[in-house]
């Protein structure tokens, strides 16, 4: 059975995957066909599937997803500003996907995480690694157009914005993960003591 914090976190992941899928889907629709549009199509299909994985995971644990108004991505656009071209979209995606992988890895480290949640985290993390890889390669092909220096500068700028988002606007997410980590370690400690 999911507690309030777990349900909120899984629902937050689900909402963020839905937002990612919709954004990349719309972008893929407006782009000219080519290798980047191809990989972006796979990317948004993955994110849609991840949203389904979370939906299914929550249901298997006897709950219904919460309707949340904000996703990770909304907070990013506020802090990092609006990307203005495809290179900037991919740069912010690269930083964002790295953050997502870190957060999923952190959730995996919660002791006694439910096997259904762990299985979902593992399945999604494998896809997220590919997302980072295709975006890294795509940014490499853009060096001829934008210049390596500008791409590196853009990545650095979004990396700094990511740290700001994380320290300021991801407070609720952080508090809920921390609560689960603390709660599980207290319960382990009391089991050990008798």
């Amino acid at each position: 059975m999911l507690n309030e914090n777990e349900l909120w976190l899984l629902s937050f992941y689900r909402t963020s995957e839905i937002s990612g899928s919709l954004f990349f889907g719309r972008l893929a629709r407006s782009m000219k066909p080519g290798p980047i549009q191809r990989d972006m199509t796979k990317h948004f299909a993955d994110e849609a599937l991840h949203a389904w994985y979370w939906t299914s995971c929550i249901e298997k644990l006897g709950a219904q997803p919460l309707k949340l108004t904000e996703a990770y991505q909304d907070q990013y656009l506020v802090a990092a500003g609006m990307p203005a071209n495809l290179m900037e979209v991919l740069a912010i995606t690269q930083i964002f996907e790295k953050r997502v992988i870190n957060e999923y890895a952190r959730h995996s480290r919660i002791p006694d995480v439910d096997p259904v949640v762990r299985e979902t985290l593992d399945k999604i993390t494998a896809d997220e690694r590919w997302h980072i890889e295709w975006v890294r390669k795509a940014l490499g092909t853009m060096e001829a157009d934008y210049g390596k220096e500008l791409i590196e500068k853009t990545l650095k700028r979004f990396w700094q914005a990511d740290r700001q988002v994380y320290s300021k606007t991801m407070k609720e997410h952080e508090e809920r993960v921390q609560y689960l980590l603390n709660k599980r370690s207290i319960s382990k400690e009391s089991q050990k003591n008798g």
């Binding site: 954004f23 719309r26 972008l27 071209n85 495809l86 979209v89």
Partner: peptide, 14 residues
């Protein structure tokens, strides 16, 4: 929404 604005600006450049 802000995503729609990103989409418009990128499509406009294309």
């Amino acid at each position: 929404d802000s995503f729609a604005l990103v989409e418009i600006v990128i499509e406009l450049q294309e």
